[in-house]
Design a protein around this nucleic acid. Structure first.
Lengths: 350, 350
DNA sequence: ACATCGCAGGCAAACGATTGCATAATGATG
DNA sequence: CATCATTATGCAATCGTTTGCCTGCGATGT
């Protein structure tokens, strides 16, 4: 039923090889034959079977996405669609498709990677978030799979990556609050295993240190990357004997949970409590009050990751691993108390 | 370099066919041979080449997603990750992977469909939103491609679909406001070409009619499916000589834009203006004020679509087209002014 | 003891493309 | 007129699987 290259060949009175060569614009085919074949191609609305093509070419022109196994949390964070949008746009431009591995329920990340790559369904993979000494990275390196990590690799030589300078970003966000006079600054982070959390927290600590403000572990809390996590984190911090006067949330979604908790306890933002988030999700701008947040340019992370990966695929494994840093900048809105309509709304930090 | 079934066969001292049969748990293989082969399988960490497998089996165990060509808008709406989450979960459970067609920039939807399906990279497709007399539907029908539409098909016989009863949902939302005493109810919708918009609007009109409230075209506006669209829509409605006292926004994102516009003009919600949205995106609950919204169970739409599609694939094209309706229910929060902590928060309507 | 049977496993032909090599036709050359 | 390039096309192997059919073997029945 489906039409193959043979059908086209038969109808055009040539051999399959000729059709194939027409498709490839091989100059060895005479213009007349080529023309005739092309007519048949249109007439039959023929599209080559990409599966067969992939088999012989040993490439699929498809990028694989390895999502964290906490898939649901990941999907719920606006980070995901935005990074996917970036990936998708770059892939489209460069003629690649996207493959999401969701199948094979019981498998862990490494097995999913093996399956995706060994089964040859993708030419390379984009890894989203890794934990400290994640076995995924070693596997990628050992297998010489073209791969790009969105996030920071513990060992830069292992895998190419694209990331923000999260330590600096954490530093900048904290410094902003310190400069506004806050001395008790709480930190609501995601899972302490995530390098992202670690980096932003270390920037926070560094800023406190540089400002001669003591680091108080009680002011640091780690929660799930959900609105609910921000809520419980904030509840903990506000229950402290001396509550913080400002909060850094390492993700806007956490920040919104935190704002909700503060609201429920009757605190006003920014009068009673300043809040700074990370990511500049669409909601940040339209929230009430609008959220001051560190824009980390998620779209560009995705776009860059796909571009780097395709580049790596094209150049074979000869490419040395690369690390690319996407700049961040703090978007000052009302939630931190520093907002002033006559200011520039955007302060460029990096 | 990559290991094939032949490598395994050689190492185990059997033929490739035997290995293949071991993989398939074919009972014709003796337990001893099977065991020996399995050992080699583990040792070599062999994974079958799914491309080759797909070629001979004529199936890929992969579902294709056809996203609207206004991809960027689509990605930005929280509808997308949620429906994808549903699709992904069902696919995973049933052993299917997901393929996003983003490649081939210049192509329109129909060409993308042709390419995806004819190229045999997917076993079926999920279509997301269609316009009135979208050529996609006809193509799907003509080609006998397994397909499920998320949304309503103009002609139910053409393609299986899963949807809400959007007319009823529009009716219920409007009726809720009418019962609260509103007579001037504005409607902010998405593109007037989308069936979704049409259905919700017609429910709105029907409710007005049933309540003997005249339908005023001036109170209806169509905008882009973005926060910005809601903003401009609201600005238009509030510039009217007699402004509406309540607003139905056919999407929460539009509702948030509308709330922002109202806020900027100094109106208070719900005191001056009641607002009802659609979708119950995560933000609706935590917004200020929390948004009354029609929960359309997006996750279930995705989940149901994937399940229906896989079912259709399994049963060949003998399956008649089906239509499934996912119920909706209004979640009453503060933005409509009817909220009362002693009430049930959820009123089940359908 | 011989024909028969069932079992375990191998052979080879697909699936639908690509591509190195061979070859038919054509015209040019000595 | 025989030889040789050159051009345009076809042949057949290949990619890594699956699967229908065949075969060799030991066990069984009479």
């Amino acid at each position: 039923m489906p039409i193959s290259i043979k059908d086209v060949a038969a109808k055009a009175g040539v051999s399959p090889s000729t059709v194939s060569r027409v498709l490839a614009n091989n100059p060895r085919i005479s213009p007349e034959t080529s023309e005739r074949v092309r007519m048949v191609l249109k007439e039959l609305n023929y599209h080559p079977n990409e599966i067969a093509r992939s088999l012989v070419r040993q490439e699929t022109r498809t990028l694989g996405l390895i999502l964290p196994n906490a898939i649901d949390q990941f999907f719920l964070n606006p980070f995901f669609p935005e990074v996917l949008r970036g990936i998708s746009q770059a892939a489209r431009k460069l003629g690649y498709d996207l493959f999401l591995s969701t199948a094979s329920q019981g498998l862990n990340d490494v097995e999913r990677l093996d399956q995706m790559v060994q089964s040859k369904r993708v030419d390379g993979v984009i890894l989203l978030t890794v934990k400290l000494d994640d076995p995924l990275l070693k596997r990628v390196q050992d297998n010489h799979v073209p791969a790009v990590l969105i996030g920071r690799s513990p060992d830069q030589a292992m895998v190419s990556s694209i990331n923000n300078d999260n330590k600096k970003a954490g530093y900048d966000a904290t410094m902003h609050l310190l400069k506004l006079g806050h001395q008790h600054i709480g930190f609501i982070g995601g899972s302490p295993e995530l390098i992202l959390t670690i980096d932003r927290l270390s920037g926070y600590a560094q800023a406190l240190n540089d400002a001669n403000v003591p680091f108080d572990p009680q002011l640091v809390t780690s929660e799930e990357f959900l609105e609910e996590g921000g809520y419980t984190g904030m509840m903990k911090l506000l229950a402290l004997p001396t509550r913080p006067s400002a909060i850094i949330a390492s993700d806007d979604v956490l920040a919104f949970g935190a704002m909700r908790a503060a609201g429920e306890l009757g605190y006003h933002i920014p009068q009673d409590l300043a809040i700074v988030g990370f990511n500049d999700i669409p909601l940040a701008k339209i929230a009430n009050p609008p959220l001051t947040t560190m824009n980390v340019h998620i779209f560009e992370l995705g776009e860059g990751a796909a571009t780097m990966l395709i580049d790596q695929i094209a150049n074979g494994s000869i490419t040395p691993t690369k690390t690319q840093i996407v700049p961040h900048n703090l978007i000052v809105r009302r939630s931190c108390g520093a907002w002033n309509p006559t200011n520039n709304l955007v302060s460029h930090l990096s």
